[in-house]
């Protein structure tokens, strides 16, 4: 198992109270596996990714749980130890490639620097690796493009450069936080094709964080749906999408127009997601849930059946969504 997260809790200790951004999240990612982490804004999906990389800044910190990377716990590691791991064994791709790229340095400077941060190699060798990585993500004439600056690339090309930088050390795990959300459909498709090929060819594990069930369905082997800091349902992609049992997952699928026939009315989830400081006791979804009863005022434990897990007192097992 490349990554195993057990009962991860990442809390933000603010003056207004403790915001439980991630509240008891467990999942695993095997070698070469793609896990789709789905949720709406504020569900804690990005903070889960940041936690794995040790990138949670005060007032936030990991308040509990374990992050096992090849069996070794990353929680409590020093900044120096995490730094030797980040970019080398675990890499991250962000929604906005300009978060990765420095606007005032050429791509070559940045990529050579990234290679030499972990490996003691000559500049020429580092440059050769940069050219190779740019080629892998489909940048035309990579040798010449190395001299360019980030602003000389289009949005889609910048994201390719960011992916190429993440690939420089052939990491075992890449955490991708909404990397195609800001891109146009045809460009998104190109990036997805690149990522899919790389994961297959190099056996790279991938955590794909997205709000878009459609993208995740096309890419992921397994899906985890997050709501208010918890994973409410997880399982094989086909299982979760064909037989969703958690009312939130069902609601999410019914809200997406593309999943329906034309003219079929949308069934939105009423209300909105509770703020992290104002979550109701018990199941955080109960105030928006069509199946909620008095039982939901206590917190549901996780139920598991054949690798399909959910947290709900009223799983909609018989119904097809």
């Amino acid at each position: 198992m490349t990554l195993k997260v057990e009962n991860l809790c990442t809390y933000f200790f603010t003056r207004a109270g403790v915001a439980k951004a991630v509240d008891g999240v467990s999942f695993e990612v095997g070698r070469g596996e793609i896990l789709g982490l789905v949720g709406e804004s504020g569900s804690g999906k990005s903070i889960t990714g940041f936690s794995v990389l040790g990138l949670v800044d005060p007032p936030g910190r990991i308040a509990g749980g374990r992050i096992l990377f090849h069996g070794e716990d990353l929680v409590g590691r020093s900044q120096g130890e995490m730094r030797s791991l980040r970019g080398k064994k675990i890499a991250m791709i962000f929604q906005d490639p300009m978060m990765t790229l420095n606007p005032v340095l050429s791509i070559e400077t940045q990529m050579v620097e990234t290679v030499r941060a972990h490996d003691r190699v000559s500049k020429a060798e580092a440059r050769a690796r940069a050219v190779e990585a740019l080629g892998l993500v489909g940048i035309p004439s990579p040798d010449e493009r190395l001299a360019a600056y980030p602003h000389q690339f289009s949005g889609g090309m910048r994201q390719r450069v960011a992916i190429a930088m993440a690939l420089l050390h052939r990491p075992e795990l890449i955490i991708a936080d909404e990397p195609t959300t800001a891109l146009d459909v045809t460009i998104q498709s190109q990036i997805l094709a690149v990522i899919q090929g790389l994961s297959r060819d190099f056996g790279m594990s991938l955590i794909w964080i997205s709000h878009d069930l459609g993208v995740v369905a096309g890419l992921a082997h397994r899906i985890a749906v997050m709501y208010a800091g918890r994973i409410v349902e997880t399982g094989e992609t086909d299982t979760v999408l064909d037989n969703p049992v958690h009312p939130y997952t069902i609601g999410l699928m019914r809200s997406v127009p593309a999943n329906l026939e034309r003219g079929e009315p949308l069934t939105p989830i009423p209300g909105m997601a509770p703020p992290p400081l104002g979550r109701p006791a018990g199941c955080p979804f109960r105030l928006r849930c069509f199946a909620a009863t008095a039982a939901c005022k206590t917190e549901p434990e996780e139920t598991a059946a054949d690798g399909h897990r959910w947290r709900c007192f009223h799983p909609q097992i018989a119904r097809a969504a």
Binding site: V185, T186, A193, V215, A217, G218, H221, M253, A258
Partner: peptide, 24 residues
């Protein structure tokens, strides 16, 4: 046709992405 075939939907699982080449 390219646009329609590239819209991700939950009906298509673990698909082969076959994007139209080039940029706008």
């Amino acid at each position: 046709i390219a646009l329609l075939s590239e819209v991700p939907t939950i009906k298509q699982r673990k698909r082969q992405f076959n994007p139209v080449k080039g940029e706008i």
